[in-house]
Design a protein around this nucleic acid. Structure first.
Length: 328
DNA sequence: GAGACGTGGTT
DNA sequence: TAACCAAGTCT
């Protein structure tokens, strides 16, 4: 691809770059890393306030490394993909142990939670290395500019497009273009700085690139959450570290199944996950089940660090207690 | 390499 | 409403 389009894109970015809280000068490796991990599969709008809270509470990687697991997981609650938070903890401690972040893509890649994209992004943005960070935005923009249907092939083609000495800036330019202009649906080609260089645009069908992903159907599951709340408290447990919502606070209950259980729930909360949907039945229960747990004040549920599934299920149950006739 | 892994916004 | 999708990583 010609350097003209790359330069046009960089110039456009220098004029229109968004002022995001992790885009500081000079770039701090800690904030770059933290923001990149938070932004994995998560929107800028969602991340921004959560990022600000994180860096206010833990201004350095050493401070983060020294924090208890529960505090960090609680601060992450609601952001989803909780393996990221578990890897974040492990990564912070590894970095604190060795004294500083490694400064190359190859070494960054060895840290927990840093895959091909994030290692390249941190190396390029925080350390100025010529590492090409290929994310879904880059794949989509390249797929359209080069009229390549295959996402991965488009990403590979994009690597040769990054200008030497400006890989970090170019990655951010592509990401801003991808989220603001070269959107998945209804791309705004009218204001695109490289529309004249876009093959898919010339073909008249930018939205046809890249090819649509094959969709899989989502199965449905059922779960029971025991509602143990004498007085003004509710019994909570911590989920097993591995698997769905691993390590997060939760209502107690058995493993979820495909069969609808024969229970009389106080409330039913329907929740959509990436690969299945869940009906969580909140069922009153007199005593806590066997095992570890704690009493959480109903007036202080916000500090429990509940993932959204359980936060919503608890809201539904509390509402049902107040309005019994509306119970599901 | 395909599936597991959350959530919220947009269409 | 349901589908689609997002600055991916790990197994």
């Amino acid at each position: 691809m010609d350097a003209t389009a790359a330069n046009l894109l960089l110039e456009h970015h220098r004029r229109h770059a968004r002022d995001l809280p992790w885009r500081m000068t000079p770039r701090d490796p800690y904030r770059t890393w933290l923001s990149e991990v938070m932004l994995q599969q998560t929107t800028v709008a969602t991340v921004t306030p959560r990022f600000l809270r994180f860096v206010e509470r833990w201004p350095t990687v050493e401070a983060l490394a020294a924090a208890p697991d529960e505090d960090i997981l609680g601060e992450w609650a609601g952001l989803g993909y909780y393996a990221r938070a578990r890897n974040l903890i492990a990564c912070a401690r590894a970095v604190a142990e060795r004294g500083a972040f490694p400064t190359t893509e190859v070494e960054l890649r060895k840290l927990p939670g840093l895959g091909a994209y994030t290692a390249a992004a941190v190396a390029a943005i925080a350390f100025g290395e010529d590492a090409a960070a290929i994310d879904t935005n880059v794949e989509r923009v390249a797929a359209r500019v080069f009229a390549i249907a295959d996402r991965k092939a488009a990403g590979e083609a994009a690597k040769g497009w990054f200008p030497a000495g400006h890989h970090g800036e170019f990655a951010e330019a592509l990401m801003d273009l991808g989220s603001n202009i070269c959107r998945p649906k209804a791309p705004n080609c009218q204001v695109c700085p490289i529309a004249a260089h876009c093959r898919a645009r010339a073909l008249g069908c930018p939205e046809a690139f890249p090819a649509a992903k094959v969709k899989k159907d989502r199965p449905h599951r059922y779960g029971i959450a025991w509602w143990v709340r004498p007085g003004n408290e509710v019994w909570l447990v911590r989920r097993p570290v591995k698997g769905l919502l691993g390590g997060m606070a939760a209502l107690p209950g058995p493993v979820w199944s495909e069969q609808r259980p024969a229970v009389n729930p106080l409330a039913i909360h329907r929740h959509g996950f990436t690969h299945f949907t869940l009906d969580l039945m909140v069922v009153p229960c007199a005593e806590p089940p066997a095992g570890e747990g704690w009493w959480q004040s109903v007036s202080d549920l916000g500090s429990a660090g509940l993932p959204t599934l359980y936060r919503r299920a608890i809201e539904a149950a509390l509402h049902a207690e107040r309005e019994p006739r509306l119970a599901a």
